[in-house]
Design a protein around this nucleic acid. Structure first.
Length: 460
DNA sequence: TGAAATGTTGGGGCG
DNA sequence: ACGCCCCAACATTTC
């Protein structure tokens, strides 16, 4: 075969890349192509896009070391592929399979026009592989994870090719837009692998507890790398399995298992989105679709800007805006605050997170928001409302996380930092709480209950 | 992958 | 010594 296009989408890596491997096995000439699809890029440019641009630059560099290079084009994928196929004489397109509603539709259309081969790798198990015995998808995490774990594990990761065939000089490539550096997340494959190695060499063994501590480096922090495939999900899961097998200390082994479960949550939400694409627009649970969310522009703005008056919420929201990433525990706290304390539609929060998270992924982000809002599959019950002060005391006991992100509170003592308004002697350039949590909690219980009741009355 | 409200228990102070 | 109360600590139920 003459030429084959390796269509790079969410697999910006040379390690364990089935689509690249497939291309190399079927042709001597492989053209790595990335298409900047306006339908997937944000306006204005999001943190996620900037991270992507950095990762593209790094992939191009890595490809050049191997003798190849990355072709970048901007436009509708179908039109771009049409052009590149014509220019290069490519006879096949090899790509990693994607399961989002947009990706599925795109790939179906393109598959009708071109010989497109899609291969696994975005998830360990594709959504069609984890089903109940009657063929229905799971909507509860625990049985999903049980079946997931019972499926055969992926084999050894694919090796990085020693060398790659050159790409025709005449093939035009656009320049990659400017990016910026996000602290802690260098956008290249080597940094991604180093981060995973570091995490799996120590923090994973105390993950069960440390993952909740806001000021600690206790989580893997690989989400941005999984988002764009700088790391292979299969390799991550494989290594988690290996660690569980090899770790003798029971607490440490349990921690490794907890981390594997987090990877499986990701797979669960990919499956949910694939089988229930409607979750991207509306509540999974019918009985909360009529929920009367508040139209509270001021509240939403205070939440977005980290000016709610609740230190832990504000620290988290500022971490997001300033760094492009937020600690997972903080995501739950801020999501609970928006949906329960402010009673603002979870979709507002979902959208804001997607604009600012460098790891922003439709399936995981939507799953997480619907979980917290109580509207999703296997979601937290509506009455499970986080108390931001208690969460702060539990998971940032010394206020280190708060002080790091809310400089106005840098000099506040530990006793006062979780609820500074309770000390009348404190004079701070910091807002008073925009809601009283006790009042807001009662309000949320009533409003959620009413929504459920309305639905029951209507469906009679 | 909550938290508040309510219930239960048991030790200690005290008349 | 005894009964009574208080309340912390823990358990259970409820939202």
């Amino acid at each position: 075969m003459k030429n084959i296009i390796w269509w790079v989408r969410r697999d910006l890596r040379l390690h364990d890349n089935a689509a690249l491997d497939h291309a190399l096995q079927h042709s001597e000439y492989v053209i790595p192509l990335f298409i900047l699809d306006p339908a997937l890029l944000s306006t204005p440019i999001s943190n996620r896009d900037r991270f992507l641009f950095g990762a593209l630059r790094a992939l191009d560099k890595d490809l050049q070391i191997k003798g190849s290079r990355l072709i970048v084009r901007r436009g509708n994928p179908r039109l771009i592929l049409h052009k590149v196929v014509k220019e290069s004489g490519a006879e096949m397109i090899s790509a990693e399979a994607d399961f989002s509603p947009y990706a599925k539709k795109r790939d179906e259309e393109i598959g009708r026009q071109f010989p497109l081969v899609t291969l696994g790798g975005l998830t360990v198990h594709p959504p069609q592989a984890v089903l109940k015995s009657d063929g229905d998808p799971y909507t509860v995490y625990t049985p999903f994870s049980r079946v997931w774990k019972s499926l055969p594990q992926p084999g050894q990761p694919l090796k990085v090719p020693e060398t790659l065939p050159p790409v025709p000089k005449l093939l035009f490539s656009e320049s990659i837009p400017e990016s910026e550096v996000f602290e802690g997340f260098p956008p290249n494959e080597q940094a991604a692998r180093e981060r995973l190695d570091l995490f799996l060499s120590s923090a994973v063994f105390r993950y069960s507890n440390a993952r909740n501590m806001l000021a600690e480096d206790g989580t893997s922090r690989i989400s941005p790398y999984l988002k764009f495939g700088l790391l292979s999900m299969r390799e991550a899961a494989q290594r988690a399995h290996d660690l569980i097998k090899m770790t003798e200390n029971q607490t440490e082994r349990a921690s490794c298992n907890t981390w594997l479960n987090e990877l499986i949550w990701r797979e669960f939400y990919f499956s949910i989105l694939a089988h229930f694409p409607g979750v991207a627009r509306k509540s999974f649970r019918e009985n909360l679709r009529g929920m009367r969310w508040f139209e509270d522009a001021k509240g939403l703005d205070a939440w977005q800007e980290g000016l709610t008056g609740y230190p832990v919420v504000d620290a988290a929201m500022r971490q997001l805006k300033q760094s492009g990433w937020m600690h997972n525990r903080a995501r739950m706290i801020t999501a609970s605050f928006l949906t329960k304390d402010l009673l603002i539609n979870w979709r507002e929060g979902e959208r804001w997170f997607m604009q600012h998270l460098i790891d922003g992924d439709l399936a995981s982000n939507n799953g997480g928001w619907q979980w917290t809002a109580g509207t999703g599959t296997d979601a937290a019950p509506y009455f499970r409302i986080f108390n931001p002060i208690l969460q702060s005391k539990k998971f940032d006991p010394k206020g280190e996380y708060i002080r790091r992100w809310v400089p106005e509170l840098a000099r506040v003592r530990n006793d006062d930092i979780h609820a500074p308004w309770e000390n009348p002697d404190l004079i701070l350039d910091y807002p008073a709480p925009i809601v009283d949590h006790r009042v807001a909690r009662e309000r949320a219980l009533v409003t959620y209950k009413a929504a459920k009741q309305d639905w029951e009355d209507q469906s009679k």
